[in-house]
């Protein structure tokens, strides 16, 4: 069986392309682009999702409806179609071409924000109603109560869900391949096109690469989850662990 040596040879010849794409002679690609796309995607989607969650819980219809529409669309339409739609329609709307990376990023941010906003909304709903009552009884406005009382608790509880959404995002970036975003799958595609005769080896390497990234992240999530559970169950641990959130809440 010559599979393993052949794979090692492919990695040896192409590791730089898999890691950073054609950088510095071309755009940054490979695993680096995949991770940058995922991190930026979640980092930009997160604040947007909090705003969307607050809008969807707002008493005003004008705020609630656009968010609900966006959530239903992202639930009901495959991500690939949204990517294609943004890729072809956005340039027509704004009148000039948009780089593939930016197209992918914008789509991911919108898509992930819609999903995260549902997670945030569920996190807010999961808190006892008395928390909002107590904050309002003390004279906080709705937004003030959200900012100082509800969100610090809800967001802390949601850390594991947000992180697993991040892992999904890593896998979703593969769809950028269809519009030539030079990420990891695209790099593997280039290698395959050049070798022509070794698709199994190339895509096996690709699968292992994604698996390593996502498995590492999942392990990290499990660790965070265990810590959070430990803090909640042990009152004393909670005291030493919580000051960070407390300080950010009262110092904001």
């Amino acid at each position: 069986m010559s599979l393993l040596p052949s794979m090692i040879e492919i990695v040896r010849d192409n590791w730089l392309l898999l890691l950073v794409g054609q950088y510095p002679n071309g755009p940054l690609g490979g695993i680096a682009a995949t991770l940058i796309l995922s991190v930026l995607g979640i980092a930009l989607a997160f604040p947007l999702s909090v705003a969307m969650a607050l809008a969807s819980l707002s008493p005003w219809r004008a705020l609630r409806w656009p968010v609900m529409a966006m959530v239903y669309i992202t639930r009901g339409v495959p991500l690939l179609l949204i990517i294609l739609w943004v890729y072809f329609v956005l340039p027509l709307l704004i009148g000039h071409s948009v780089p593939a990376f930016a197209t992918m990023l914008v789509t991911l941010v919108g898509y992930e924000a819609a999903f995260l906003s549902e997670i945030v909304r569920a996190g807010i709903h999961a808190l006892p109603k008395g928390q909002m009552d107590a904050a309002r009884a003390l004279g906080h406005s709705r937004l003030g109560a959200m900012r100082y009382v509800i969100l610090p608790q809800a967001l802390f509880n949601m850390i594991p869900s947000i992180l697993s959404q991040f892992v999904s995002t890593v896998k979703e970036t593969t769809l950028g391949y269809i519009i030539n975003v030079p990420e990891l799958t695209f790099a593997a595609g280039q290698i395959n096109n050049r070798l022509l005769t070794k698709p199994f080896e190339v895509y096996f390497i690709l699968a292992i690469s994604y698996f390593i990234v996502c498995w590492t992240l999942t392990q990290a999530i499990n660790m965070v989850e265990r810590r959070i559970t430990a803090r909640r169950t042990a009152g004393v641990a909670a005291a030493s662990a919580l000051p960070a959130t407390a300080a950010s809440a009262s110092g904001a």
């Binding site: 928390q131 107590a134 309002r136 906080h140």
Partner: peptide
């Protein structure tokens, strides 16, 4: 909100803010 801030209210279920220390609960 101003009216409410002038009416102290104590709940059956306490409703302290669990992410804040006793001191921060009172200071917030």
């Amino acid at each position: 909100n101003r009216l409410r801030s002038r009416i102290g209210f104590v709940f059956q279920s306490f409703n302290l803010f669990p992410h804040l220390s006793a001191l921060d609960n009172v200071m917030l």
